[in-house]
Amino acid sequence: MADLKYYDVILKPIVTEKSMNSMSEKKYTFAVHPEATKNQIKEAVEKMFAGTKVAKVNTMNLEGKTRRRGYQVGKTAKTKKAIVQLTEDSADIEIFSGL
């Protein structure tokens, strides 16, 4: 298990058409550290965004894509994505409100 602080867990928000549509159900999508656990992600969201309460966290491990540059073949880095469901009485996350 990684020794991660809460500010190292969430890397960036993911803004796509699908993630914007799920915001009406209080579901927010983030790119997270590949070794972060669900409990660490929950703690990070509740500490970083005041007034939020997390109901559940779904995570997805995304493998790196194979890329070629001439004869050489390599892979891009692995990533992890988390979909965070907030409770009904929770405050919204402000970074998504201006979009």
Rank of each mutant, 00 (worst) to 15 (best):
E63M: 02
V45E: 08
I95L: 13
S97V: 12
K27Y: 00
T87R: 08
A44T: 06
D3G: 00
S19L: 04
T52H: 02
M23Y: 05
V54Q: 08
K42Q: 13
A50N: 11
A55H: 15
T29A: 13
L4G: 02
T52M: 09
K42E: 07
F30H: 01
R67C: 03
K5V: 03
E25S: 12
T66L: 11
R68P: 03
V84S: 13
N21Q: 11
S19K: 01
K38G: 00
F30M: 05
R69W: 03
E94I: 10
T52S: 08
A50T: 04
G98I: 07
M1D: 15
M20H: 04
V32I: 10
K27E: 15
V57P: 08
Y71A: 11
E63D: 14
Y7S: 11
A31M: 13
E35C: 02
K65T: 14
V45Y: 00
R68S: 13
D89R: 05
A31N: 09
A2Q: 12
E46N: 12
V57C: 09
A2H: 04
T37P: 01
A36W: 01
A50L: 11
M23W: 00
I93D: 02
K18E: 15
D92C: 04
S19W: 00
N39P: 01
P34A: 08
T37C: 11
K75P: 06
V54H: 05
M20S: 09
I14E: 09
T66W: 03
E63N: 08
K75N: 15
P34E: 10
R68H: 09
G74Y: 04
T76R: 09
Y6Q: 05
R67M: 12
I95Q: 04
K12T: 09
E43Y: 10
Y7A: 04
V73G: 07
Q72S: 10
V54L: 09
E63I: 04
K18R: 10
E46L: 00
V57E: 10
A50Q: 06
L11Y: 04
V45Q: 02
Q85V: 02
K81Q: 08
M23K: 03
L86Q: 00
V54E: 05
A2T: 14
I14P: 03
Y6P: 07
T87I: 04
S19R: 03
M1G: 13
A82P: 00
A77W: 06
N58F: 03
T79C: 00
G70Q: 11
K26V: 01
Q72C: 02
E94A: 10
E43R: 15
T59C: 04
T87W: 07
M48K: 06
A77C: 07
K56M: 07
R69S: 15
T16Q: 12
L86D: 02
K65Q: 15
P13F: 00
L4A: 01
E35A: 01
P13L: 03
P13K: 03
S97Y: 06
Q40A: 03
D89Q: 12
D89E: 13
D89S: 15
N39H: 10
K12I: 07
M60S: 01
Y28M: 05
S24T: 02
K78G: 05
N58M: 12
T76W: 05
